[in-house]
């Protein structure tokens, strides 16, 4: 659609700008402020330059948390994207069944994140939870509170359970936008199921899949509440992701300087990855 050049449109954007600036720019400036100062109390503070940044960059614990974070994000993307597409292909398209399936699939998305943690905390316990008990029946001494591997498995499983519906619903809405004539043409050509998927459905899904990957990457990169409730980051630090190590540092130890420097680095990583995605989307839209 052609757009009209009109700088008065700024007036319409102004309220959004003000409200987001209030809750984004002011706090961000506070963070920047902390990241270059050593603060003893509200009246004694020294400018320390990039010292906190150096400290953060060399901090082993943060390196580990960052690596864990990337492994986690890629694992869940690898599972959730294909699984989400599969579920979307299976979802009924017509009648009462379609609405019902839509509502049921969307339920996990609307559960508060701490309750998601609680659900899996209960579900994974061998004494009172079905999943834990089933694992025990299979002869596995399943305990997410003491075995790092089991803790990982539970956290990944929880995230897959929680967020595959988002990918599935995105793909479902992408599939609904394909005109029926495409399928009719494929039927006349006696296209195989795979050919229909590869040459008709998948190209139409590209747009929503990019949104899906972007949202899932961002949100999994910021994950805090669910693992916090489920494992508390443990056993040891095996499921401590970036957000949690940041909160530990800022609130737990009250190391404001390093925590602020860490925040900025963290934010920049997310921003960088998302900028790559955003430009890709924009380029793809331009190509069309």
């Amino acid at each position: 659609m052609t757009k009209v050049e009109n700088n008065k449109a700024w007036w319409l954007v102004m309220p959004v700008f003000l409200i987001v600036a209030f809750s984004a720019i002011i706090p961000l400036m506070t963070v920047v402020n902390y990241s270059v100062q050593d603060i003893f109390d509200p009246y004694t503070r020294y400018f320390v330059g990039t010292e906190w940044f150096k400290q953060v960059m060399l901090d082993e614990r943060l390196h580990d948390a960052l690596i864990r974070q990337f492994i986690f994000s890629f694992t869940i993307l690898l599972i959730e994207i294909p699984l989400g597409i599969m579920v979307a292909l299976m979802m009924p398209t017509k009648g009462k069944g379609a609405s019902l399936a839509l509502i049921l699939v969307a339920i996990p998305l609307l559960i508060p994140w701490n309750v998601v943690g609680t659900i899996w905390q209960i579900f994974g316990r061998a004494d009172i939870g079905l999943f834990g008990a089933m694992m025990a029946k299979l002869g596995i001494n399943y305990n997410y509170a003491s075995e790092p591997m089991h803790a990982w498995l539970t956290v990944v499983l929880m995230d897959v359970w929680h967020w595959t519906p988002l990918v599935a619903l995105l793909c479902y809405s992408g599939l609904r936008a394909i005109p029926e004539v495409y399928y009719q043409a494929a039927r006349i050509d006696k296209a195989s199921r795979w050919a229909v998927f590869r040459y008709i459905q998948l190209p139409k899904l590209t747009n929503v899949l990019i949104i899906g990957v972007l949202l899932r990457f961002m949100d999994s990169f910021m994950i805090y509440t669910e693992p916090f409730v489920l494992t508390g980051g443990g056993p040891g630090t095996s499921t401590t992701f970036l957000s949690q190590s940041l909160v530990q540092q800022a609130i737990g130890q009250f190391d404001l300087g390093p925590a602020a420097a860490f925040s900025l680095v963290y934010f920049l990583i997310i921003l960088l990855v998302c900028w790559v995605f955003y430009t890709t989307i924009m380029h793809m839209q331009k190509d069309k």
Binding site: A24, T30, M222, L242, S243, A250, Y266, I270, C274
Partner: peptide, 14 residues
């Protein structure tokens, strides 16, 4: 959009 990407943990204290 970049604000949608901001981790809440970053903004907690400020």
């Amino acid at each position: 959009l970049s604000n949608r990407m901001a981790p809440p943990a970053v903004f907690l204290l400020p």
